Structures are given as C-alpha cells and as structure tokens.
Amino acid sequence: MKILFVISTLGFGGAERVCSLLSSRFAKDFEVCIAKFDKSEPFYELNSDIRLVNLDFGVGEKGFLGNIKKRFGKIFLLRKFIKDEKFDCVISFMDSTNILVLMATRSLKIPIFVSEHTSFELVKDKIWDKLKRIFYPRANGLSVLTHDDYRYYKKFVKNVNVIYNPFFGEQKAVLQKQNLVLFAGRLIKLKGCDLFLKAIFKLDKKLIDSWEFAVAGSGESERELKNLAKELGIKVKFLGNVKNIDEIYKKSKILVSSSYVEGLGNTLIEAIYYECARISSKTSGGCELIRDEFDGLLFEVGNSNQLSQKLGTLMQSDEKITQITKNAKLKIAEFDIETIYQKWLNMLKNGGFE
C-alpha cells in the first residue's frame, strides 16, 4: 500500500518534526512518499526507506497575482503527481496545505486525511475559516491536537480525532541538571519569547545571578528579542536552531512556554521525558497538557508578571521541581510513538483506508 504525506517544507518546526517522525514509523509497514514544495534538505532525520519528492514551486511570497498563480500551479502539479503515482492514501499537514490537497484531489477516489497543528483560535482571517468549512468536510478524517479543537471541528467534520504529537528523542536519557531555564521554539511574536525575557527581568536579582537562561530557536523576531534582552540588561544565551536539543533539555531544570496561541507544543511533551518542570501560558495546548500546580504551572496568556512569579517560585524550590516532573511522567505513555501510530491507523481505518 502506497501512502503519500504532503507538507509545504520539512524545515525546523513542530509540525515538520511530527511529519518526519510519523512518516518514518509508517514506512516500517507501508510504502511511503513525502512530497514538499521546496528544494531544501529536511531538517529532521527520515527513515531511509522514504521516497522524498520536491515539487518545487517555492514557498515565499510572490505578490497577489504571483501567489494566486503559484497556488493554482501547486494544485495542478500535485493532482497530476497523485494520479500518476496511484497512491492508496494521502495524509496532509498544516491548514493551507490541507486545503490545497483537498482541492487537488477533488473527485479522485482516494482517502484523504488532514492534520491540524495550530489551535482553532488562530484563524488567519475569515476567508481561511470559510475555506476550512467548505473543504474540511470532504476529508476522510481530521486529526487535531486538543479537545478544544475537537469540539470546534466536530461541528462540521465527521471523522475528527484528538491525536497528540509523539515524543521525539531519547526514551531514557542520562540527565545532568543545572540551574538552567529554557525557552525553545520559533522566534516569532505568537511564541511570546518577549514575555519570557520580561519575566526574567522582574525576578529577584540574587535569584537571577544563580541561574542561567537560554533561548533555542530562530525566526523573524530574533534580532528584536536580542535587542530587548540588551535593553533589559539580562543575560540570556540565544542558541539558534539546535539539532541536538536533547542535550539542552538534559541540563535544564525548567522549560517555559509563553505562547499567545499554541496548539500542542512539542516542547511541553519533550520536557516530560527530560524531567524539566513546565511553565506554560493558558493556551489550549498548555491547558490540554498541564494540570496547574500538579504536573506543571500555568499563567494567564500575555501576563509577564504572573510568569515571573511562577518562575521565581520554581527556581527557589528543587523539591517542587522534582514533584512536578514526577507527576508529569504519569502521562508519559500517551506520547509514545506506537500509541500515536495506532491512533492514526484507527483514524485511517474509520475513514475508509484498508
């Protein structure tokens, strides 16, 4: 059986990471191909049995008319590729690619499954919301990351399934904990790294002097954030994109996710395995993964004062860090790749893929 995964790029990012890991697991049992729309090398490792195809159409902005031409070009190119290759199933990642795939496969008798990796609250604009309501019901199945997303999409899509992101890393790591607080993620406004920096600034100076702070990731806001750190007079290491992020997790005692909107942050899952105490804003993803004061700490979205207070509490208590990380491990089996894989197989079966 031939399965096609479609994603815009395979660069540094949460959805890209999940696609890489999930497709690699499928490749153990099926003939798997990944189609993407650029020529860049994958950031994450893939199963060597996977066939990677670059349907190079570019992913940058080309102006209004250029973007329209580019999207229609992608639709026709993708449709021809799927028909010629005679795939038995197509799995798409990310909203814009999902809609493109559903448009390209209209009237083709192939099961199509789409995967959402952002919160339903992050609606680009009314046009995108309408496009989802028009095209998503045509999918044979939809995977979402939280129960909030499930309740939203269930109103107009039949086969909706809550499937968490799988863990991506060492199952049994040797930890070497230091007084280190980590922020990991793309450096864009939605991820709220500015809140993290402001929260550090508001900590007691004696506490700051006995800890280190690191930011792993890159993005369009990187220069702005580095300037903010300088303006605040705080010492923060900006590490850029880190392929061996597990080495940073092993040293970190605390992981901060300060997003304004978040589906299901991979960092909050990875932190469980590496015994990092988690602090998250009350996004749908944060609330899905953390029970406040039990297996992590939650703060109001956009509230750097509250984040600073919660962060300071943890930094002053190794005992609290130990208890929170111990409680977090009670849910560890939910993120095992085999557990996630079986949920995907069940969704595909319920959607007509045999």
Rank of each mutant, 00 (worst) to 15 (best):
L195V: 07
V123A: 14
L207C: 09
G141Y: 04
D148P: 03
S92P: 02
D88S: 14
K130C: 08
S143M: 10
C193E: 03
Y150N: 04
K126W: 14
D84N: 14
L190T: 11
Y152C: 02
S107I: 06
L187I: 08
V123Y: 04
V90R: 02
S107A: 10
I110E: 08
K126C: 09
V123M: 12
Y136D: 10
I200K: 10
I127M: 14
K86P: 11
D194F: 04
A214F: 09
Y150I: 02
S115N: 13
D204N: 15
N159H: 13
M94C: 08
H147D: 12
R106D: 09
L108R: 05
L180P: 04
K177P: 03
K191N: 06
F183R: 00
Y150A: 02
K132L: 04
I110W: 04
I134L: 14
K172G: 01
D194W: 01
H117Q: 14
L203C: 10
F135H: 06
Y150V: 00
D84H: 09
K158M: 13
V215M: 08
Q171T: 06
I208P: 01
I134N: 10
L131V: 04
K191V: 06
D149K: 01
K124F: 11
Y153E: 03
P111T: 09
G192C: 01
G219M: 13
V174G: 07
W211D: 05
D149N: 01
H117D: 09
I134P: 05
Y136P: 06
E121N: 08
F93T: 05
I112H: 09
K198Q: 04
G219E: 11
G217Y: 04
N159S: 12
K86H: 13
H147G: 07
V215S: 08
A104G: 03
K191P: 00
P111R: 11
C89E: 10
A184E: 11
K205M: 09
F87M: 10
A184P: 12
R133K: 15
F201D: 14
K155M: 01
D129Q: 12
R106Q: 13
G217N: 07
Y150C: 00
A173M: 12
K191H: 05
R106W: 12
V157K: 03
E121F: 05
V90D: 02
L175Y: 12
Y164S: 09
K126S: 15
I91R: 00
L108N: 06
A173E: 11
A173I: 12
A104N: 04
A216Q: 07
I134K: 14
H147Y: 13
V162P: 02
A214Y: 11
P137T: 15
F213T: 03
I200D: 07
K202N: 14
N165L: 00
S143W: 00
K126H: 13
V162K: 01
G219F: 08
S92F: 01
N179F: 09
I99T: 10
L142E: 06
D95L: 10
F167Y: 15
K158V: 12
